[in-house]
């Protein structure tokens, strides 16, 4: 399989700051990749280098088989994080301008624009000026602008920011649709839950360096569950019987019931059975590590779900609407 994007040893510095450090990245054609990491990790810089908006200080790259994205710009769709519209321009005129810049003019351009606007639920805005639209509507117009020329490679930088849950779902469906059509998708986000629910494969960046590059399935099997969630049948029951179960290292009060940390080498299956025997349970659940847990674990040197991860965690969560997958 040929790669849509390949970076080898790419480094970019701004003055004293190293934004991206010796990054290797290969994205196969047709893949749906997530580029994740907290704010300021170097995601946007990486994307801008892929698009040849910025140029790396060191390293090699190829995009869609070309040495630089400049030679393949018409085949790339890009939704920047800092995105805007011409305020005074009409929506239809803006989309047709962007499409023409991408070499996707043609006689049926007007029809295609109307089709796309209908698809995102903005059928009646073609003649409106961009400044008359709400922020969410503008976001959708920008999304259409990235897709209007049917790109082979779609790069989305924080596509969900500022959207309500309904529109987040709409954008997610469109991304999956483009993926099914055969486009390679690279999606960058600091909200790891989005990536976890949408992508096949994630690349995690922290302080400009890659810390993880695996499929979601691999991550789930590598970072096997070390925590049990236990909810007692009787709400007031004491936790003492649980602490003495073999393989349980620590018991901690959770919002509903307790979190049991498993000892090194303990078999989760056996522990679940023993815990169920020790105390009548309303619910016992093996808690899978989220991408967020994995990330915090990776960057804080395997210290687990420790307190120093709290700040990092805060930067990885979006206030609301984390639920993307329906």
């Amino acid at each position: 399989m040929t790669s849509a994007i390949a970076l080898r040893g790419v480094t970019k510095t701004f003055g004293q700051t190293v934004a991206v450090r010796d990054l290797d990245l290969v994205i196969p054609q047709g893949a749906l990749y997530g580029l994740i990491g907290p704010n300021g990790a170097g995601k946007t810089t990486t994307i801008r280098m892929i698009l040849s908006i910025l140029f790396p200080d060191k390293g090699e790259m190829s995009v869609l088989g070309r040495r630089s994205a400049l030679e393949a710009k018409d085949r790339i769709g890009y939704l920047p994080e800092e995105r805007g519209l011409y305020r005074r321009m009409r929506v239809g005129a803006f989309l047709s301008y962007v499409a023409r810049l991408k070499g996707a003019g043609g006689d049926d351009l007007g029809r295609r624009i109307r089709g796309w606007l209908e698809r995102v639920g903005l059928a009646d805005v073609e003649r409106k000026r961009c400044e008359e639209l709400s922020k969410g509507m503008q976001q959708k117009v920008q999304f259409v602008a990235a897709l209007i020329h049917r790109p082979d490679l779609l790069i989305l930088d924080e596509p969900f920011s500022g959207l309500d849950p309904v529109n987040q779902r709409l954008v997610r469906d469109l991304v999956l649709e483009e993926h099914r059509r055969g486009a390679t998708v690279l999606l960058s986000t600091h909200v790891m839950a989005y990536a976890e629910q949408l992508c096949d494969h994630v690349v995690m960046i922290h302080e400009g360096a890659k810390v993880l590059d695996e499929t979601i399935a691999e991550i789930h099997s590598r970072f096997d569950p070390r925590t049990l969630l236990f909810e007692p049948l009787q709400p007031g029951a004491g936790a003492e019987p649980l602490g003495s179960v073999p393989g349980v290292e620590r018991v901690r009060k959770a919002r509903e019931g307790w979190e049991l940390a498993l000892a090194e080498g303990a078999d989760p299956g056996e522990v679940v059975r023993d815990v169920a025997a020790a105390l009548p349970a309303a619910r016992i659940e093996l808690k899978r590590p989220t991408l967020e847990d994995v990330f915090v674990q990776l960057v804080s040197g395997g210290a687990g779900i420790a307190e120093d991860g709290g700040r990092l965690r805060a930067s990885l969560q979006d206030g609301a609407g984390v639920e993307v997958r329906s």
Partner: peptide
């Protein structure tokens, strides 16, 4: 200045040099 402050410029730069 308008293109820059509107942040339209990055969309343009993905299409033209």
């Amino acid at each position: 200045v308008e293109e820059k402050s509107n942040r339209v410029v990055e969309v343009l730069l993905s299409a033209v040099s």
